[in-house]
Design a protein around this nucleic acid. Structure first.
Length: 381
RNA sequence: UCGACAGUAGCUCAAUGGUGGAGCAUUCGGCUGUUAACCGAAGGGUUGCAGGUUCAAGUCCUGCCUGUCGAG
């Protein structure tokens, strides 16, 4: 079941731990380092499937918790899985819902056996066990499944984190066993990653990684970061984590991050990222561009008829002006959100493409330097 | 022309005679495995004008101005 060709490293940077590779699922070949747009409920918010295709998106995220609540596993099963349901024939990675028990923490109660939670939609009570989380993801049919984990806030007490990584390990072992004893439902194989925790405590992070690495997961994720800690601390934890993660398996940093975070963490050996930032910020009127971030609603842009980004060509930047985008946001027009989302996702994917190219040419350090000069110049602001 | 009602922030409206507020709009921030087209902050007022009563008036009284409606 553990396909040896699932992940291959293609090139290594001589300047850092950065590397390129390829993830081969039955639905797509994914070049790494990769950024995976977040599509929690079966849609990358405000971006159509054909737009994702247009900038060559090979994998997106879904969320077990949210899809379980809506539309529910019965409908997803009847539809023949999420791919068919949403008409997406590339890859999907589903998060387990562990993060929702952190972000919706008031609605949950953690037990040894799993998590009891109340739906944020109507208060209905449910109980997720590690096995159930796998069962749901079997029905969703994601190419890569994530195990149930416990994500703690930062900062957390050493003893609390220590206890937590023990619980997470037990849950993930159960997920793995259930994964091995069940089968895919729709003819394409599904992979299962681990998620290590350990907060910002190096020894706990190391222990979590080593314990999980003993199990034959298809890849390893770093969880519990970007939850309020300083950026430099996050980079340190990532650096430390990748020193201990198996080199032959893909490394996935969950929930990260800003464009700068992506470069910093690629240098530290990360292969996969996901983050709501490009889509959420787009809906909130913030554009990511080569020359920094733009608040599209700013009064300064009223009469600015230039492209939001002449150097990163997307459908949006190639066809529309800042003044028009601003107008759409001020007028509360849906198209503004769509165009901003298209641009931001396009910007992220383009950035990753450039990063991969730089690693292949072994010029990542130079690329980073040049990127940062422009990105932090604030020319547009 | 007469009558009724109404004039408070850019807009729509609050405010027992007792420190004039809110929503929207404006401007500026913030969003990191999506409860998020969201959240936060700031700016913005001779309460239509002129008098009067009162310790104290957006509020009560008088006149004027403007608007809406009605009558003629």
């Amino acid at each position: 079941m553990n396909d040896k060709n699932f992940f291959s490293v293609l090139s290594n940077s001589s300047e850092s731990k950065a590397r390129t590779g390829i993830l081969e699922t039955e639905n797509s070949n994914i070049l790494t380092p990769v950024f995976m747009p977040v599509g929690t409920t079966g849609t990358v918010k405000a971006v159509e499937q054909r737009e994702l295709d247009e900038f060559d998106t090979r994998i997106i995220l879904g969320n077990t918790y949210h899809l379980f609540l809506r539309p529910g596993i019965e409908i997803l099963g009847n539809a023949g899985g999420l791919h068919k349901f949403m008409n997406w024939n590339k890859s999907i990675l589903t998060d387990s819902g562990g993060f929702q028990f952190f972000s919706l923490s008031k609605l949950k109660k953690i037990y040894e056996d799993g998590v009891e939670f109340s739906s944020h939609l109507n208060g209905d009570k449910y109980f997720f066990t590690p096995e159930k989380v796998i069962d749901i993801q079997r029905i969703i049919g994601s190419d890569i499944m994530m195990p149930l984990d416990e994500c703690l806030p930062h900062p957390s007490e050493f003893s609390r984190v220590k206890e937590s990584i023990g619980l997470t390990l037990k849950w993930e072992k159960r997920c793995f066993e259930h994964y091995k004893s069940t089968k895919e439902l729709y003819g394409h194989s599904q992979k299962l990653f681990s998620i290590n925790q350990g907060g910002a405590f190096p020894e706990l992070r190391k222990k979590s990684i080593e314990d999980l690495a003993e199990i034959d997961f298809d890849g390893h994720a770093i969880g519990g970061l970007a939850v309020g800690e300083e950026n430099s601390l996050m980079y340190d934890v990532v650096d430390h984590a990748t020193d201990h993660l198996p080199g032959k398996k893909p490394r996935y940093l969950m929930g990260v991050g800003t464009p700068i975070d992506l470069i910093e963490c690629v240098e530290r050996g990360i292969d996969m990222f996901d983050c709501v930032m490009p889509t959420r910020n787009a809906r909130h009127g913030r554009l990511f561009t080569t020359y920094g971030e733009i608040n599209i609603k700013s009064a300064k842009l009223k009469n600015n008829f230039s492209s939001p980004d002449e150097e990163c060509i997307t459908y949006t930047s190639a066809n529309f002006t800042l003044a028009y985008l601003r107008h759409l946001f001020i007028a509360n027009e849906i198209l503004g959100i769509q165009l901003a989302s298209i641009h931001n996702v396009g910007f992220y994917l383009n950035l990753m493409k450039n990063i991969r190219q730089a690693i292949n040419n072994d010029t990542l350090k130079k690329f980073k330097k040049e990127f940062l000069v422009k990105y932090t110049s604030g020319i547009k602001n």
